[in-house]
Computed example of a mutant assay.
Amino acid sequence: MSARWLDDELEDADTVPAPRSKFKTKRPLGRRKLATLTTESDDADDILRRLKDLGHVTEIVAELKSGKEATAYVARGPRGSVLVKLYRELEARSFKNDAIYREGTVILKDRDRRAIENRTRTGLQMLQSGWVNAEYAHLWTLWHAGLNVPEPLVGPDPYDYSATTPAVLMKLIGTEDEPAPRLSDAALTPAEATSAWEQSVTGLSQLLRLGFVHGDYSTYNLLWWENTVIIIDFPQLVTRQNPNFRDLLARDVQSLVTSFRKHGVHADPDTVLRDVQRRAAGPAPEPRLVLP
């Protein structure tokens, strides 16, 4: 395998900032009712209406952000403000090189494995469903374990959250008028930057302690709200069964170090990697109590 294999596979990952626009939008793009919602495709409208029919969403407030992988909407539901992460169809997504994350995953049926490898329509649908269900499953695992992640709002039974594919619903971090910014976009004081760095390294070590590597860990997938770092974006999370586990961990450390330079934090990746591994052997966060 060539030395550039990981960069080639992840050339579309979110660790690289998108081109800057002259016009920055810090808040949702106005309040938009579901009945008047216009999105990039009729399919997206149908999915949002299905979420409403299922009772998970009562109103779409605004489109928050449209990225390479998904469009995020601010919505309201029975439990308050909701973030709806609506994944694009796999054919239209730029992040097609997801094979490295699936290595080590056993697919029992030969027919299913061939469909995925050949990226047939059925295979793409299976990948789409698996990607969304993986994010829900990981969110529930990390939320229960006490990590700073958004609270998932459907599940934890896979039967429930599979009905929302290709959308993932979670509690909105921030408020409707001021959703939490990504750390990459946040203006931090030196003291805040130091705190955010410490929390981010701790978060990476907590993932490792649970046997996970994020796979795309940087300030572009960390939120900053009320002086707290919140980790987001988990469909590509990998376990030690993946043969790329160590390389992905090292890449996460490098991405975190590189993306924090904007905030005046300069660290040596090798030193940080050793620190993350050391911390991973320490105490776990307090698990959240799950009420019946």
Rank of each mutant, 00 (worst) to 15 (best):
R4P: 00
W5A: 08
D8V: 08
A13M: 04
R20N: 07
R20G: 13
T25P: 02
K26P: 02
K26H: 15
L34K: 04
L37R: 06
T39Q: 06
D43H: 12
D45N: 14
K52D: 15
L54C: 09
G55W: 07
V61H: 14
V61E: 15
A70M: 03
A70Q: 06
R79F: 13
S81Y: 13
V84D: 12
A92V: 11
R93C: 10
S94V: 11
A99Y: 10
Y101D: 09
G104A: 10
K109S: 15
D112H: 12
R114I: 08
R121P: 02
V132H: 03
N133I: 05
N133Q: 13
E135S: 05
E135A: 05
N148Y: 01
D157E: 14
Y159N: 11
L172T: 05
E178H: 13
P179Y: 07
P181N: 12
R182M: 14
L183Y: 00
L183I: 09
T189A: 12
A193E: 08
S195V: 06
S200F: 04
T202V: 03
L204I: 01
L204E: 00
S205T: 03
L207F: 00
R209Q: 02
G211Y: 02
G215Q: 02
Y217T: 03
Y217E: 05
S218W: 03
Y220H: 14
Y220K: 11
N221S: 10
W224R: 04
W225Q: 11
N227R: 14
N227L: 07
D233Y: 04
T239D: 07
T239V: 08
T239I: 04
F245V: 02
F245G: 01
R246Y: 08
S255I: 02
V257E: 06
S259W: 06
V272P: 01
L273H: 06
R278I: 04
R278G: 10
A284C: 03
A284R: 00
P285G: 00
L289N: 00
L291W: 07
